[in-house]
Design a protein around this nucleic acid. Structure first.
Lengths: 175, 175
DNA sequence: ACGCTAGGAGAACGATGGTTCTCAAGTAGG
DNA sequence: CCTACTTGAGAACCATCGTTCTCCTAGCGT
């Protein structure tokens, strides 16, 4: 049922989908919806928190696969590329939600900030494991964020590869 | 009068400000508003197009100042840092608008894509002038985009400096 | 001074959407 | 078989907002 909400919110933006539509496509009655989530804001927050965990799980499952720490860093960008190529890709759900609601809904702003902080933390771990500094982790995060928004707006997955080669250049050379 | 609309739309998101509020803070009557812009969509498009020109003008005025092509590239990130530090900074108006309206308003999606394409084109020029390739321009663009969204979400101007040092590392070494 | 036009302030209208209410159907327990 | 509780479908309610309309005021030409 959160699946339906997630698909709708992500595809069209939170404010462009009504509760009636969530109910119709999820098959859950309004009454039940409102006893699970007392307001739309609660539903939105649940949507973001769930997407945070699944998104990061998917990423780490993919990027933690290689043995070589350098390969792990690069795998992040491979994963991004495959994500960008999906037909329903429409950028980062958190960045979108932040632009839409960050100024008026502090709970949304917080959820977004936490998601991004967790992502940066993960990259910092990969960066230091690959022999870099924490600053390298931040730089990788900037490349990834930039690739996500650029891919969304331009509609091509190419930014993932550009970010990947930039990351390669920033990584310390093989010891 | 577009000043008022711009301030409101940027600060709170397009869908969180009504035409009544535009009228109140701008002092322009609704009648006049609607004879200038037949619909809110037209006003939004005008807002984006105007912000595109002023934003890029401000950027180039600052970044074209140094003589050294490498300095010009780095100046872009200095300009970003100063922008991020402004108290009303709330990320990239175009990314925000895209997340909010890109899926439902093709005119908005187009305006955003054009703005970003122009920005990438400008960076590509700086990159080649500094002895790099067009691919370097794309990488610089990714760093800048990432810095913008990260600064917005985290609330600190620090990403500008991180992007700057990454850019420095990616630039070809002084000949 | 008098009509006439333009423009503004704000009410009015219609649609949409978040939230709640009604009512009927289904089910478990006696 | 009957009753009490739950649940779902959808109507109803209320606020908001984009858009239009009404009325009133102010200036201006004669």
């Amino acid at each position: 049922m959160l699946d339906a909400a997630e698909a709708l919110f992500y595809a069209r933006g939170v404010q462009n989908v009504g509760m009636d539509e969530v109910r119709t496509t999820s098959g859950v009655s309004l009454k039940r919806l409102y006893q699970l989530f007392p307001s739309k804001g609660d539903l939105v927050e649940a949507y973001l928190r769930r997407r945070d965990t699944t998104w990061r799980q998917d990423l780490t499952r993919f990027a933690d696969a290689p043995e070589d720490p350098r390969e792990r860093v690069l795998a992040v960008f491979d994963w991004l590329e495959q994500w960008f190529a999906q037909p329903d890709f429409r950028g980062c759900a958190f960045i979108n939600a932040f632009g839409e609601l960050g100024a008026t809904a502090p709970a949304v702003a917080d959820a977004v900030a936490e998601h991004k902080a967790a992502f940066r933390h993960y990259l910092a771990g990969l960066a230091t494991a690959a022999g870099g500094t924490a600053a390298l982790g931040e730089q990788l995060a900037l490349l990834a964020e930039g690739a996500i928004t650029t891919a969304a707006i331009s509609g091509t997955p190419a930014p993932a590869r550009q970010a990947r080669t930039a990351a390669q250049a920033l990584l310390p050379h093989r010891a």
